[in-house]
């Protein structure tokens, strides 16, 4: 099972490789990927450097081109695909149908991974993408229970990659408009969820108000541990309740250390760590824990148990300092 780690820049890429990532995924320095943050991502020159580094230690890198081009701008996305092919990327992570078509026609040898943003959650959708565009792998949205992942893995015509750790999207990815509803920008179009330039914190007595494009999404204690502000993790009121509540989800991160044996038995080929926007220190810390966990599992699958110190290390870098199995666990749903 591959350990696939995020690399927002060369420093993170090195950190991931040093800490034992089998593969990394990267994006270009523009809005062709869904982590288009200032100071992040790779220019064509940096991508070459990244390719060299990865190849020299015999690991793999995948290029993420997972936003959806709008009319008149398609050329930039096509050029990104051309660049991926030239760079020798070991895979291209794509969501948009026109881009899958372009890549399939122009670079049939370049392995296509269906991005989570394509929101394919079932056998019919996966088979269709495989038949039409010869995708090799699909990244599953974080809406499936472990049982559903196992069922799908039994019959899937393509390799499956799942999210193992990181920020928890609670909606079917690629089809969530909460960010654009409030800010006008979403991962699909603008390249990020809840863009930082729309976030504003205000202190008011012992409270901290969190605003997203002026909309109050939370009011917390000054010392309360909060995650990155997104609409689905805000505290709101209903007509029936007086106290504000996390109506959708509270700040927490996904962690599936406990599921490694089940995911491996199901035949999942890759475990993805989320977080191209996070620091090299984060990437190093998380990669180390996951490398240790996977090595422990591979050495003695039947005796595997997630260690407390791993969980503690991951909780430290998690939103709200807590983790959850998310939708993998039916009771969460």
């Amino acid at each position: 099972m591959e350990l696939l780690c995020p690399a927002g820049n060369l420093a993170s890429l090195k950190a991931a490789l040093n800490a034992g990532a089998d593969a990394v995924y990267v994006g270009l320095k523009d809005d062709t990927n869904a982590r288009s943050f200032a100071g992040l991502n790779f220019t064509p020159q940096k991508l070459q450097e990244a390719a060299h580094l990865v190849n020299s230690c015999k690991r793999k890198f995948y290029l993420t081109i997972n936003t959806f081009p709008q009319p008149g701008q398609e050329k930039r996305w096509y050029q990104a695909i051309d660049l991926a092919a030239e760079s020798g990327a070991h895979g291209l992570i794509v969501a948009d149908i026109s881009l899958l078509d372009y890549a399939h026609q122009h670079y049939p040898e370049l392995p296509l991974h269906l991005s989570v943003q394509a929101s394919a959650t079932n056998l019919a959708a996966l088979s269709f993408y495989q038949q039409q565009f010869n995708i090799q792998r699909a990244v599953l949205p974080r809406v499936l229970s472990i049982k559903q992942v196992k069922d799908l893995a039994k019959t899937s015509p393509v390799d499956l990659e799942v999210f193992a750790f990181g920020s928890l999207c609670i909606m079917a990815e690629g089809r969530c408009q909460l960010s654009s509803y409030v800010t006008g920008e979403s991962p699909n179009s603008g390249g990020s969820c809840s863009p930082a330039r729309h976030v504003r914190w205000q202190e008011q007595g012992n409270s901290r108000l969190t605003r997203l494009n002026d909309v109050l999404i939370d009011c917390s204690g000054i010392n309360e541990q909060m995650g990155y502000p997104v609409v689905c993790k805000g505290r709101y009121l209903t007509e029936d309740t007086e106290a504000p509540q996390f109506l959708l989800e509270s700040p927490t991160s996904l962690s599936t250390l406990d599921l490694i044996p089940e995911l491996a038995a199901a035949g999942v080929v890759s475990l993805k760590i989320e977080g191209r926007q996070r620091s090299p220190a984060y990437v190093e810390q998380v990669t180390k824990v996951w490398r240790a966990a996977l090595d422990k599992y591979l050495a003695a699958p039947e005796r595997y148990q997630a260690q407390e110190n791993w969980q503690a290390a991951l909780a430290k870098v998690s939103e709200g300092q807590t983790t959850t199995l998310g939708a993998y666990e039916r009771s969460w749903q």
Binding site: F68, P69, Q70, P71, E74, A95, D96, I97, S98, D101, Y102, Q117, A118, S119, A120, T121, N122, L123, A124, A125, S127, F128, Y129, G174, R175, N188, S189
Partner: peptide, 28 residues
């Protein structure tokens, strides 16, 4: 859902793409 697109294509049935299918450009 793309599952419905897939089945309609397989069965050669015409269909309407609803709002939750990601159609973001003319080529798609």
């Amino acid at each position: 859902d793309m599952a419905a697109v897939a089945i309609a294509q397989e069965l050669n049935q015409p269909f309407v793409c609803g709002p939750s299918i990601n159609n973001y450009n003319r080529a798609t």
